[in-house]
Design a protein around this nucleic acid. Structure first.
Length: 124
RNA sequence: CAAGUAAAUCGCCUUAUCGUACCGACAUUUAUUGUCGGUAAGGAAAGUCCGAACACCAUAGUGUAACAUAGUGGCUAACAGCCACCAGUCGAGAGACUAGGACUAGUGCAACAGAAAGUAUGUACAGAUAAUGCUGUAGUGAAACCAGGUAAACUCUAUGUGGUGCAAUGUCAUGUAAACCAGCGUCCCGAUGGCUAUCGGGAGAGCGUAGCACGCGCGAUGUUGGAGGGUAGGCAGCUAAAGUUUGCUAGUAAUAGUAAAUGGAGAUAAAUGAUAAGGAAUUUUUGUUCUUGUGGAUGACAUUCUGAAACAAGUUCAGAAUGAACAGAAUUCGGCUUAUAGAUUUACUUACUUA
RNA sequence: GCUCAAGUGGCGGAAUUGGUAGACGCGCUGGAUUCAAAAUCCAGUUUCUUCGGAAGUGUGGGUUCGAUUCCCACCUUGAGUA
């Protein structure tokens, strides 16, 4: 399949985000944090995903945008395995909880770890 | 050359692969998906400090209050912006900076020191006089009789300003919601008509006009408060603009007129990215070429000349490392302010110091 | 996005017609009391110092003889807004 990450795969509904933060479970692989929730919605997409970087840790819009782009890119390249293995629908929110900037290589590496951890947690 | 001053410009580039947003075309299905093509951040997009456009509030009124501005003249849609000139302060200079109206309208304030801080006049000395703060000098202090100082003190003068901001506003969807509870109010006269009805006039609790008063408007299916319910979407507003560049004309200039050319982001948990390769700028470092200075071996010589090693600065070529600062559109413009590695151009200045 | 407010020792919080900055409380340090501790009482507590002073109210400027106070710019924190 193609390694895309377009609008329909994004988590955009405020309602869903609220329930995700209230009821979802969390996995940490520093400096990343994944909040996920098994749910259902009216679409063929298996996972809706959002990314977020705290304004408290990164004052400047440039830094936040940069990190969010890295997160999206890393998710885009590594999501294939997830889509092949899971059966139900999920909502994801990936947070960057570190306080310093980083490069793509680190983010990519940590993202792989994070998604593997998620698969183990779900299969249990 | 060096050190500076002012003004202006730029502020990484190229290719490949994978991807994001919007628009258009085609295909597929009407939920969407795919292919192709086009477009996609800044000089400050930032701070939100001024001024406007635009929208709504009542048609956006009068007085007063409040707030803002403040040399003179001009420019502009407008401005606290810009230009020119004057004055003052700073600098050796090119230049830079200035909330730069009025204390001869009134009121207030002035710690400490000082006899005394605005109603003046103590002490010492000198001078003058019939006599006297009548005249001068001394000390304190930021300021001591001078129409004193102070208005980024009240105030006065001149000019200007209605309020709220695109989360404005309109519309679709959702919801029993023009619903429920409490307070106040729910009136009178005339005409038409067979009464309940309609029209006109008056009164009217309260509400709006977001300081106050007047005025104006709404006003009985009213108005104020309470307690609750629904949505957290979609669409419009939403991107073509007081635009930019060049020439000519007017003007010292800001700017205006005119002709030609050029130009095009529109997201909403919020698009413009990732990886790889190459190239430029910069800085560091190694070797190397040349020049200059310090230095003074050596030789000639005798008021000098020659000038080795070593050191320092600049510079030529080659190699290695580094691989760009501040920073991300959120209704749109004009400014201001703040951040900013480095590069380029033009004009101008030069006291000390060095050549 | 838009619109507002605040900032003073370690902490909360005073001090405003512009005139000695740090009242008051909490905390901390030392002492008294006690076998020991708590409670209580007393004293000290912005920083530096050559011990004479100097700096200091988020930061940097300005007005003034003099600024926590008035004005301007910036920084940080917080609030409201469909």
């Amino acid at each position: 399949m193609r390694l895309t990450f377009n609008k329909s795969e994004r988590l955009k509904s405020k309602k869903l985000i609220d329930t995700l933060f209230n009821e979802g479970k969390a996995i940490k692989v520093f400096p990343l944090k994944l909040i996920y929730l098994e749910t259902s919605y009216d679409s063929s997409i298996p996972i809706k995903t959002g990314v977020s970087v705290s304004k408290r840790n990164f004052k400047k819009a440039v830094d936040r945008n940069r990190l969010k782009r890295l997160l999206r890119e890393a998710y885009r390249l590594n999501k294939v395995e997830l889509f092949n293995k899971i059966t139900t629908q999920y909502a994801f929110m990936i947070l960057y909880i570190g306080k310093d900037g980083t490069d793509f290589e680190t983010v990519n590496h940590k993202m792989k770890q994070l998604l593997n951890t998620f698969l183990e947690a779900v299969s249990e």
